[in-house]
Design a protein around this nucleic acid. Sequence first.
DNA 1: CATCGAACCAACC
DNA 2: GGTTGGTTCGATG
Length: 119
Amino acid sequence: MPLLVSGEGEAPRRASFPDYLEAVKAIVSLVPPGRVTTYGSIARLLGVSPRLVGALLKANDEPIVVPCHRVVRSNGELGGYSMGGPGVKRRLLELEGVGFDEEGRVRREYIVDVADLIA
DNA sequence: CATCGAACCAACC
DNA sequence: GGTTGGTTCGATG
């Protein structure tokens, strides 16, 4: 059951890409530095498929204002990164204080669910 | 731990 | 009009 949004003076319509993009931006910016969240976590909150979240972040216009590097896979692997490759992504996270294990995965204790951030 | 399949929407060819 | 993506999750061996 997807979200419903209403533009000003416009009939309510089914939320679509740009709308979800806004939501994701807001959510990602809630994640504090030194912590990471997952695609699935966001997806559940918005009621969409995790795949869509990936597509959203890829379509993200401004990676600077929306730190998409703070979103990783649920098993701790980095996932992809459109700009600069995974190496850059890992460096950024390390810079923020996120810990990695020998396998190159984010340690569990650094991963938070967005649900927790709201609660 | 590794593999398989299904769910979902826009972009791309 | 078909394939692909920054994926996930449960089931199975």
